[in-house]
């Protein structure tokens, strides 16, 4: 075959291929054309395979022409393909229009109870100060609930805490304070000690917006050498600032508890009236947050700790009270009704 003849043939092939590609309307036909010309048995592939039979003199020239032709067809194919892909896709996308503002599909979202939340917050603050969590039974004996806490049977405070008694035995009762855990820990662990004990307590009180026969306290105890009242003040002041996450004006007001001496009530300035006096604080301008004091030497002696060697402080706070203050909840019964409309706000 002469060079001119080969050139004419290949030019015609390219022309027919480009025209066919140009006229193609869909990706499938385009793919068929690619196979027809460029496939293993395609027209151009066969023609190029025939180059070896050509005259040596024209072979380089023919090879060059063949490669140019292949490139031309490939380019045309690729260009057409990308064009057809885009237009097909655009057609499909147009069928996929939705209102993207409709609400999403939702599982319920679970919420942690506010009392758990505040309890966890308190625990983590004390945890950062080296306290660990301790636990004790709710069905207690009068020894742990009263006697060991320096509250003998003749003590008037024993009546004030309307206690529930149980069928387990004459000394069995539902603990009225988490201070019981102090005693159990000190009985079993040698000082130094730093514990925090959250838990449920019971008092025989009529149900109303402020009272429920069960509620929750967090008790704390620190026993070490040379622990003094100043450290009690320092520790609890730091705790309150951390709990409320802002500076809170507080005061330590003397009080009496059977198992601490000296004892104090920690008050914060009423956040609802900034100390001017309102309904929430009963006009006092201050709100009681927790009770605390230096552990009474009788309590230490009772558990075999020498009060001349060790001293310490204890404190206790009501979770409901703190949660009601923090979240502005006005009825304690909300905590136990478990209305989802309540729970889902926390």
């Amino acid at each position: 075959m002469e060079a001119q003849e080969f050139e004419a043939k290949i030019t015609a092939l390219v022309a027919s291929a480009l025209s066919a590609i140009d006229n193609t309307a869909d990706l499938d036909s385009l793919e068929n054309l690619r196979v027809q010309y460029l496939g293993r048995e395609g027209e151009l592939t066969i023609m190029l395979r025939g180059l070896s039979t050509l005259d040596k003199a024209i072979r380089p020239k023919a090879g060059q022409l063949g490669n140019q032709a292949k490139l031309q067809i490939e380019q045309a194919h690729d260009g057409k393909r990308s064009h057809l892909y885009d237009s097909t896709l655009n057609q499909r996308l147009a069928t996929e229009i939705i209102d993207v503002t409709t609400p999403g599909t939702r599982c319920l979202s679970g919420h942690i109870h506010p009392l758990s939340q505040i309890s966890n917050e308190i625990i983590s603050i004390f945890y950062s100060m080296g306290f660990t969590v301790a636990d004790g039974p709710e069905v207690e004996t009068d020894y742990y609930n009263f006697d060991a806490l320096n509250t003998p049977a003749s003590h008037p405070a024993r009546d004030e805490q309307d206690t529930f008694y149980t069928n387990i035995g004459p000394s069995s009762l539902l603990r009225s304070q988490t201070s019981t855990v102090q005693i159990r820990v000190m009985e079993n662990t040698k000082p130094p000690l730093r514990i925090i004990a959250p838990g449920r307590v019971y008092r025989n009180e009529e149900v109303n917006a402020r009272k429920y026969p069960l509620f929750h306290q967090v008790e704390g105890l620190l026993i070490d050498k040379d622990v003094n009242f100043g450290q009690l003040k320092g520790t609890l002041s730091a705790f309150i600032q951390a709990l409320f996450k802002k500076p809170v004006k507080i005061r330590f007001r003397p009080d009496f508890f059977p198992f601490t001496e000296p004892s104090a009530e920690l008050d914060s300035e009423c956040p609802f009236c900034s100390g001017k006096g309102c309904k929430t604080c009963g006009g006092r301008g201050w709100l009681e947050l927790l009770g605390c004091g230096m552990v009474d030497p009788n309590v230490l002696k009772g558990v075999g700790i020498d009060p001349e060697e060790w001293s310490g402080f204890a404190f206790g706070m009501g979770l409901e009270r703190l949660a009601m203050l923090k979240y502005d909840i006005n009825d304690i019964r909300n905590f136990y009704t478990n209305d989802m409309r309540f729970l889902e706000q926390f």
Binding site: M129, G130, P192, L193, R194, L222, D224, D226, V227, N228, F229, G230, Q231, K233, G234, T235, S237, A238, R251, F252, R253, P254, E261, P262, S263, A264, M294, D296, P297
Partner: peptide, 26 residues
């Protein structure tokens, strides 16, 4: 003795006691 210390603490004023932090952490 502790009962007297309590009385002194109270009469002298709780505000007179300087807050500090406990020393050793376990």
């Amino acid at each position: 003795e502790i009962d007297l210390i309590e009385a002194l603490c109270r009469l002298n004023g709780y505000d007179a006691i300087v807050p500090s932090m406990p020393a050793a952490t376990m």
